[in-house]
């Protein structure tokens, strides 16, 4: 059985997995092939997970099984029971937890390596990028979910003229923490500051956007989560993550553009949202 754990076998399985992702995505773009395309992509995902489980030296099996069991126990009923009309917010929620997973992994990587001590520069940069984008995606998606689910008011919520300075301030805090860590700072406060500032940024950017524009915003955040997954792949040197993440990042950007065009809206106008001017929502 040792050949199964050969890194080359695992890499080959990853290649099979991302080939299936691409083939499945191609299927998803046509009405006749869409159902099959989705299934093919799901098979690819199963292969990628099994291949990862073969990685030599894997341990902590009980904790892994606990996490997977928890995720299945929450995810399956949620996906089965959601009403057809509530689908967009469900996608927002699923997208959000993906971003949350990226941010959590990045945080743990920081902690485990004692602030990237002795790690190459690209590892810290890729991980911090993943942390920022994952955190923005998690909180932004949760706000999008809240708006569509009508937990939060659907109308644009802004802090008026202070919106842009506030966003800029949050960007600057995020950048400051990130640069400080890359420059060798090992204090965990910097990492927590980075995660919190980007979380607030995610909330501050999505809150001013009206409910009607939410599908486009969810698609944009979806592309972001893909990019953050690709960055995690660079940091962990994992081909499957790089390919799948980047494909989602690229196809998600195109799709966001298509969706905005179908609604006769431009992406900058949507993201500018409530503080862009008249605050009309499509």
């Amino acid at each position: 059985m040792s050949w199964l754990q050969d890194p080359a076998t695992i890499q080959c399985l990853y290649i099979v997995a991302f080939a299936l992702f691409i083939y499945g995505l191609m299927g998803l773009t046509g009405p006749r092939t869409a159902v099959r395309g989705n299934l093919i992509a799901a098979v690819g995902m199963a292969i990628a997970v099994l291949a990862t489980a073969l990685t030599p030296g894997m341990g902590n099996w009980w904790l892994i099984l606990l996490g997977i069991a928890l995720g299945t126990a929450v995810g399956v009923p949620a996906a089965r029971k959601v009403k057809m009309t509530a689908m967009p917010q469900m996608v927002a929620l699923f997208n959000g937890v993906g971003g949350g997973a990226v941010a959590l992994v990045a945080w743990v990587e920081f902690r485990q390596s004692n602030g990237f001590t002795g790690e190459p520069l690209y590892v810290s940069i890729a991980t911090l990028f993943a942390a920022v984008v994952g955190s923005v995606s998690f909180w932004g998606s949760n706000v999008a979910f809240g708006k569509l689910q009508e937990i939060l008011p659907g109308r644009p919520i802004t802090v008026g003229r202070m919106q842009q300075p506030l966003n800029l301030l949050l960007v600057l805090i995020t950048l400051f923490c990130g640069v400080a860590v890359v420059a060798g700072g090992t204090s965990e406060l910097l990492m927590i500051g980075l995660l919190v500032a980007s979380a607030l940024l995610g909330v501050a950017v999505v809150l001013p956007i009206g409910g009607a524009d939410m599908p486009v915003v969810i698609s944009l955040l979806n592309a972001f989560t893909g990019l953050s997954a690709a960055a995690t792949g660079i940091a962990l040197n994992n081909t499957a993550l790089i390919v799948a993440g980047m494909i989602v990042g690229a196809s998600g950007s195109i799709l966001t553009n298509l969706m905005a065009k179908a609604m006769n809206r431009s992406i900058p106008a949507i993201v500018a949202g409530g503080f862009g001017g008249d605050g009309t929502t499509a």
Binding site: M45, V49, L63, I64, G67, I68, L70, G71, T72, V74, G75, V76, A78, A79, M90, F94, N95, V97, G98, G100, A101, L104, V105, V108
Partner: peptide
């Protein structure tokens, strides 16, 4: 994170 990822995939 694993639970989140699983929800994302399965859901």
């Amino acid at each position: 994170a694993i639970a989140f990822g699983t929800i994302n995939v399965v859901g």
